[in-house]
Computed example of a mutant assay.
Amino acid sequence: MIKRLPIFVTILVLAAVATMAGLGIWQLQRADWKNGLLATYAAASDMPAIAYPAVPSAEDAPYFRKSTVNCLEVIGWRSTSGRSANGQSGWAHIAQCRTAGAEGPGAQVVAGWSERPDDPEWDGGIVDGIIAPDSQYIIRLVASEPVAGLQKSQPPALEDVPNNHLSYAVQWFLFAGIALIIFLIALRGRNKGVAQSGNLS
């Protein structure tokens, strides 16, 4: 049996299986880490307000914390699909603000919601709100009270934070198991072929 074992292929397959299993374990560790973060986020609404981060970190973003931004000047707008506080579909209007001092070089502020994507008229000001995830800038501040005649946007929810690590771990373990099974089936077929050839000789 050992003589019929393809050494190089075996090493290659086992290395691949070990790598995939290792990635699965890493994803499980990430799942534990993310669950801890989500527990922190769930309790964030009862925590004191913080200064808006100058340089946010995706690994430790202060989602769902109360904060305040002084929007010195609106230098741009972007409108994304969003919901109002009562759940109506429409547009969330995000102001790209120039800031200064401790608040850093800029901030994304969800000024409010409307049924149309047209940019509202707003020159800036102090905005209180809740820090939410942002796909482009990591975080944004959702205004607690809308400005420029807009309606209140739906506040951020825990569902806005992706947590797919457990499903990724299952996928990696499945990949590892499938690769190992395919290898064993191929090895068995190869050994049968070798045995039949030996019997014929």
Rank of each mutant, 00 (worst) to 15 (best):
101 G>M: 10
112 G>S: 07
22 G>E: 01
43 A>N: 05
110 V>R: 13
153 S>K: 10
12 L>M: 06
200 L>E: 14
145 E>T: 04
188 R>K: 07
156 P>D: 00
104 G>D: 09
109 V>A: 08
103 E>F: 05
199 N>G: 12
76 G>I: 15
88 Q>P: 08
50 I>M: 03
127 V>K: 12
36 G>C: 11
105 P>I: 15
66 K>N: 02
154 Q>P: 09
90 G>E: 12
28 L>I: 03
116 R>C: 13
200 L>V: 15
41 Y>T: 04
31 A>D: 11
5 L>Q: 02
63 Y>E: 09
177 G>M: 07
16 A>Q: 04
200 L>P: 15
21 A>V: 00
137 Y>K: 15
182 I>T: 04
171 Q>Y: 04
187 L>E: 02
147 V>D: 10
145 E>N: 05
185 I>P: 01
171 Q>M: 08
154 Q>M: 10
94 I>C: 01
55 V>A: 08
23 L>C: 00
183 F>R: 04
171 Q>E: 00
164 N>S: 02
47 M>L: 08
102 A>L: 11
67 S>P: 14
7 I>R: 03
133 P>E: 03
68 T>R: 04
159 E>H: 08
5 L>S: 03
12 L>V: 02
186 A>M: 06
66 K>A: 04
152 K>S: 14
61 A>M: 08
175 F>R: 12
45 S>K: 11
63 Y>T: 08
149 G>F: 12
98 R>F: 15
29 Q>W: 02
134 D>V: 11
10 T>W: 05
109 V>T: 10
45 S>D: 07
57 S>V: 05
39 A>R: 08
136 Q>M: 12
143 A>W: 06
141 L>Y: 12
160 D>N: 11
16 A>I: 07
80 T>I: 15
59 E>D: 15
107 A>L: 10
158 L>E: 06
59 E>H: 13
98 R>N: 14
185 I>T: 02
168 Y>A: 00
166 L>D: 00
55 V>D: 03
26 W>Y: 05
162 P>R: 00
175 F>G: 01
58 A>M: 14
21 A>R: 02
181 I>V: 10
150 L>N: 13
39 A>C: 08
96 Q>D: 13
182 I>P: 05
82 G>E: 04
151 Q>A: 12
40 T>R: 01
148 A>L: 08
115 E>F: 09
48 P>W: 02
72 L>N: 11
186 A>F: 04
42 A>C: 05
111 A>S: 13
32 D>Y: 09
183 F>P: 01
3 K>E: 00
89 S>T: 12
105 P>T: 11
119 D>H: 06
73 E>S: 05
33 W>E: 06
96 Q>N: 07
141 L>P: 14
32 D>M: 13
103 E>R: 00
127 V>E: 11
129 G>M: 00
64 F>M: 05
67 S>D: 12
141 L>Q: 10
46 D>W: 03
47 M>V: 10
56 P>I: 09
74 V>G: 09
171 Q>W: 09
200 L>A: 14
140 R>M: 05
113 W>Q: 07
114 S>M: 14
193 G>S: 12
126 I>K: 10
131 I>R: 06
